[in-house]
Design a protein around this nucleic acid. Structure first.
Lengths: 112, 112
DNA sequence: AATATGTGTCAGGAAACCTAACATGATATT
DNA sequence: AATATCATGTTAGGTTTCCTGACACATATT
């Protein structure tokens, strides 16, 4: 994962600011967590800590609900997205591996 | 100001996460605010809200103090930085203005 | 009509944050 | 050496935010 993605995944926001950033109520935010649409971290005392990605996710949820999708629909949408991201990552690491082999060959015969 | 700079200036962090991100105590953070080294916003109930820029600033303060600078030194350093940033912005907007004039001339005589 | 869904609301309690004040070790000034 | 300043620790009392769990309710689905 890139530096940038790591930063976007840092759990740094409390539910209060997330509420302000998303215009959702905390009831809604907690409910969506309960439905496994987001999985915020927890601070020492047990308080939720959200990442910027969580905020994006919540905004997406809001849009999906507004346009008539149900929570279950959104769960499937997210599951599909996750599978695609996984496939992409898999194919990229496969590519990396095959490139490594290729370079290893070059190294063996052609180097210096 | 760019979109990116705006985002970096959003007041979204509570003192708790800032404490974790900077490894400072809240006593220190509040003291530096009192010394006008940072000026976090305030939430509805009066609680401090920090931006990512504030965090950067606090990390810088920590480094300066570690290397022997006093708070007053840091105040002057920041004041100098601020002056420079201001000058830069001034000269840039002056440049923009003069370019605009130039294009206006071209427009007057050379266009279509 | 009965059930499921998504959200509102309330209660009681815990955690986080606030300000103000006093304490203290280290360094600077007199 | 005595005193003052600086940066931070600590404590106290009060306010705000967040927590979970429960019940209520309007709307959609069966």
């Amino acid at each position: 994962m890139s530096e940038r993605e790591l930063r976007r995944n840092l759990s740094i926001l409390t539910i209060g600011t997330v509420r302000e950033l998303t215009l959702l109520t905390d009831r809604q935010i907690r409910y969506y967590e309960q439905q496994n649409l987001i999985t915020p971290g927890r601070g020492k005392g047990g308080q939720r800590r959200f990442s910027l990605n969580d905020v994006d996710q919540l905004l997406a949820i809001r849009d999906f609900l507004d346009s008539g999708d149900s929570i279950k629909d959104i769960q499937e949408i997210f599951a599909k997205q996750h599978r695609k991201a996984q496939e992409k990552q898999d194919s990229e690491s496969a590519l990396r591996r095959s490139l490594q082999k290729e370079f290893a060959q070059i190294g063996r015969f052609g180097a210096r």
